[in-house]
Amino acid sequence: MSQFVFLYREARTPSPQELESRMAKCLVWFKDLEKNGHLAYYGHPLNRTDGGVVRDAKGTVTDGPYAETKDIVIGFSLIEAKDFDQAVKLAAACPLVAGGCLIEVRPVLKL
């Protein structure tokens, strides 16, 4: 088993109704991961506001990784999977993806 960090990224802020139905679906998805031994750490949702990307030593800050986008990380989790392919399958089943979110899947570096 390897570990992967899931970075949930999103550029827009959904409506409260959307967030509510998304919450219900996410809870189910997380429960499934947990049951199947894929969840190493729930992780945390991150505040959409007051954050930024530091771009240089002067402390220039932009919203997202690219100066022109607002694409921001809205949360992270630590996932256990056999390999990258399985991690991708798990991520693809996440209700956030269906709602237009991106998930960046990054293997944890092992020595």
């Binding site: 967030l19 996410c26 729930y42 945390h44 949702p45 949360g75």
Partner: peptide
């Protein structure tokens, strides 16, 4: 009210209500 709820739903998506 909208702000309060939106924030809560987002936070609770991870650990449950």
């Amino acid at each position: 009210v909208q702000e309060t709820l939106a924030k809560a739903f987002e936070a609770w998506a991870f650990g449950g209500v």
